[in-house]
């Protein structure tokens, strides 16, 4: 047996090993855990557990004068944003886009929608109600909330990743980010999307499917 034959045999063996390894890898890939969304925010490690930052407790009032708190969303996932009714810029686009998401998940009782007004001085309850009525949405599924302006702003900037702040030079007196946030049943942020971009909103809808599979494994999608 010459050297060449030996090398050829070695190559064949290596090829076999490579095919075996690839097969194992593919098998593992097929049986791996379902895709998971990232968890946003700070993490702290306590003992063996990794804790993620969660949305802090809050209390606002919705278009039906109902108090909406973090407990309203117990056992639910929700999409949230920050808007104001007199906004001439991105808000109508955002609402149109969020309505698209709402329409897709309207029949899923595990999904909720929460739009905060960042102009509580003008967005009175009757105005929010008229707005919700005009959209033709189920009020028990999509809340338009108002409350103390400072509380809403600090909720936006400190707890949600969206930024909402008064800027008198911007049209309508406010500037804001246009972000939609996806919150899971543990009150963790699992996604942030540009609410003015239909492609990004498509991504949100796809991510919601993944999150629903994770949080509600028995729900048939």
């Amino acid at each position: 047996m010459n050297v060449n034959t030996l090398i050829q045999k070695k190559i064949v063996r290596m090829k076999k090993l490579f095919i075996l390894l690839m097969s194992l890898f593919l098998l593992a890939a097929c049986t791996r855990q379902p895709e998971k969304l990232p968890v946003f925010g700070k993490t702290t490690i306590v003992g063996n557990e990794t804790l993620h930052s969660t949305i802090r407790p809050f209390s606002f009032v919705n278009q039906d004068s109902l108090t909406i708190t973090e407990k309203t969303f117990d056992g639910k996932i929700y999409v949230t944003d920050f808007i104001f009714l007199s906004c001439q810029g991105i808000c109508p686009v955002m609402t149109h886009q969020l309505k698209r998401v709402y329409d897709l998940y309207a029949s899923n009782p595990n999904v909720y929608f929460l739009s905060h007004s960042i102009d509580p001085a003008n967005d009175t309850i009757p105005r929010l109600k008229a707005y919700a009525d005009e959209l033709g949405i189920d009020h028990s599924k999509w809340s338009f909330v108002t409350g103390d302006k400072d509380s809403i702003f600090s909720m936006a900037s400190d707890s949600y990743f969206a930024t909402a702040f008064a800027d008198s030079t911007a049209p309508g007196g406010f500037i804001h980010s246009g972000v939609f946030l996806l919150i899971d049943t543990d009150r963790q942020i699992r996604g942030a999307y540009d609410g003015t971009n239909p492609d990004e909103v498509d991504r949100l809808m796809a991510d919601m499917k993944i999150l629903i599979a994770e949080d509600f494994p028995n729900w048939k999608q």
């Binding site: 278009q63 004068s65 001085a121 309850i125 009757p126």
Partner: peptide
């Protein structure tokens, strides 16, 4: 366009979060 809830609660407006 005023809501029922805000009219019912008007006499106790100080105790509610319904008004700006």
């Amino acid at each position: 366009g005023e809501t029922e809830q805000r009219l019912y609660a008007l006499s106790a407006w100080q105790e509610t979060p319904f008004y700006t």
